[in-house]
């Protein structure tokens, strides 16, 4: 088609009136770019239709312009279609965010509570542990205080190792008030397997059984231990006996005489 044929085809009018098919529209757009005469003709056609619309103009209601400008000056100025789709979308998003936010808050709160609970549990456990340690320390302190009293008040007798066991040393604290005898066995070597130390008091030249000495119980050294009480004695001795002890000493390993007060 030459330019004149294009102009007289009627296609430009269809295009201007917006009733051209897609294929026709594309064709006209190519022509318009290609031929200035076509562009000019189209412009004239559009102006003709524009004039027709102007001739058929109906004055709009007076308040429409005010409403329109109020709308475009609204901060958000969303494109509100008559079917209100965007508004719905906005509202829905709001709820979505609100829901997400409250779920996040809930999770945060739950986590916070959980961690608080854990902290309280930890603190309680630590407190109990500390109380137990304090009790142990108190018991130890009491025992030590007791030992100190014994050392302070008791008559000290040093037992010396005999030639066959020179390092069998021990200290005796003899309570003059009540006759209690305390042995500090911490310097005694562990008794050989199957043997046990036995304590004796020499009263009037005769050894009197004073009880078995425990030097090691499950790996724990025994310090002060109470023996039988004696009203009087010239000396104290420790012997090695078979387990369970003997009525009379068989192998005396440590002896100490009571020095006169």
């Amino acid at each position: 088609m030459n330019v004149q044929e294009i102009i007289s085809s009627g296609l430009l009018e269809l295009y201007a009136a917006d009733i051209a098919t897609d294929a026709e529209r594309q064709q006209v757009e190519i022509w318009r770019q290609q031929y200035p005469e076509v562009a000019a003709e189209l412009s004239a056609i559009e102006l003709g239709l524009e004039n027709y619309a102007t001739a058929n103009a109906v004055p709009p209601a007076a308040n429409v312009k005010d409403k329109l400008f109020a709308q475009i000056n609204t901060a958000a100025a969303p494109v509100v279609n008559i079917n209100t789709q965007p508004a719905k979308v906005v509202a829905f998003n709001g709820w979505k965010w609100a829901a997400a936010a409250s779920i996040a808050l809930l999770i945060g709160s739950a986590f916070f509570n959980y961690s608080l609970y854990n902290k309280v549990e930890n603190a309680t456990a630590k407190l109990t542990e500390a109380e137990q340690q304090l009790n142990v320390a108190k018991l130890e302190a009491d025992a030590m205080k007791n030992d100190i009293e014994v050392v302070k008040q008791g008559l000290q007798v040093s037992l010396k190792g005999q030639p066959q066991m020179p390092d069998a040393k021990a200290k005796i604290y003899w309570m003059t008030g009540n006759g209690d005898v305390m042995v500090d066995a911490s310097n005694l070597p562990d008794a050989p397997a199957g043997k046990q130390y036995q304590f004796w008091a020499i009263v009037d030249g005769v050894p009197v059984e004073g009880g078995l000495i425990i030097t090691n119980d499950k790996g724990k050294k025994f310090r002060m231990q109470k023996m039988k009480s004696f009203g009087r004695a010239e000396a104290f001795a420790i012997s090695l006996e078979k387990e369970g002890g003997n009525p009379t000493p068989t192998e005396v390993v440590s002896v100490g005489a009571v020095t006169k007060i």
Binding site: E50, A53, T54, N56, A57, V58, P59, P60, V64, K65
Partner: peptide, 9 residues
């Protein structure tokens, strides 16, 4: 607005 309103009405 008048010309467009003419189309609408």
């Amino acid at each position: 607005a008048g010309a467009l309103n003419g189309v609408i009405v």
